[in-house]
Design a protein around this nucleic acid. Structure first.
Length: 186
DNA sequence: TTAATGATGGGCT
DNA sequence: GCCCATCATTAAA
C-alpha cells in the first residue's frame, strides 16, 4: 500500500479537502493497524479568519506552518483533539480538518458513531497533540498515514458551510459523503 | 494575573 | 432541539 505523496497536499487546499473524501486513513496506535475511510472534511486557508493561523504563528499552531503532508493536531474547547492535514509548503498555513471517518472494511466491529465528529474520532483512535502533532502522513512507518482510495463521485458529495465557527461562517468549505449516515446534516 | 473565546460532545427533553 | 461542562490558548490589563 502506497501513501499519498506530499504533492497531493500541494494542490489548492479546497481541492485537497474535496479529494480527501474516500481516501484511507491508516492508524497504528496502541496495537494493530486499522484503516478508515474519510467521509467529512473542512478546509482552512491563509487569510481565512476562521483559520487558527490567521493571527500569525504561535507555539500552538506551529505545525500548521510545516510542510505539506504533515499532521496538525490541536486542542479545542480545552478538551477535544482535532486532526488536520497540513496543505501547501512550509510557511503557508493551510489545512484540512478531518471531521468524520468510517471503519474500513465495513466489517470492523465498533460503534460507527464513535468516528463521527472531529473530537470523537481522535479520542477513539487515541490521537493526541503530544504524540501526533507534526507527524508525517506520507510515511507508512508513521502511526498515522493516508493512502489512495476510490474517489467519491460528485453526485455523492455535498458542499456546504463549515460547522461551529463564528468567523467567515458563510464560506462553503465543508465537504461530506452524502451516503454516509454518520455525518450530521446541519 | 485575569478574562474571554472556542474548528465540541454528551446528556436531557 | 437546547443546554452547558470544561480548559488550552490568547488577548487584555
Amino acid at each position: 500500500m502506497k501513501p499519498l505523496p506530499p504533492d497531493f497536499y500541494r494542490q489548492p487546499t479546497l481541492d485537497v479537502a474535496r479529494s480527501l473524501l474516500g481516501k484511507r486513513l491508516h492508524c497504528r496506535i496502541g496495537g494493530a493497524e486499522r484503516i478508515y475511510r474519510i467521509v467529512e472534511t473542512e478546509a482552512y486557508r491563509q487569510g481565512d479568519p476562521a483559520c487558527h493561523a490567521f493571527r500569525g504563528r504561535t507555539a500552538a499552531n506551529n505545525a500548521l506552518f510545516g510542510p505539506a503532508g504533515t499532521a496538525y493536531v490541536h486542542i479545542n474547547y480545552g478538551m477535544h483533539h482535532c486532526l488536520n492535514t497540513v496543505c501547501q509548503d512550509e510557511g503557508t498555513a493551510e489545512g484540512v480538518l478531518i471531521r468524520a471517518i468510517e471503519p474500513f472494511p465495513e466489517t470492523q466491529e465498533a460503534p460507527r458513531t464513535a468516528f463521527a465528529g472531529p473530537g470523537r474520532l481522535t479520542r477513539t483512535l487515541g490521537i493526541t497533540r503530544s504524540a501526533h502533532n507534526g507527524c508525517d502522513l506520507c510515511d507508512t512507518k508513521s502511526p498515522l498515514w493516508l493512502s489512495d482510495g476510490p474517489p467519491e463521485p460528485d453526485n455523492n458529495v455535498v458542499v456546504t458551510t463549515r460547522v461551529g465557527i463564528t468567523k467567515a461562517a458563510e464560506r462553503p468549505w465543508r465537504f461530506y459523503v452524502a451516503s454516509s449516515r454518520l455525518v450530521s446534516r446541519r
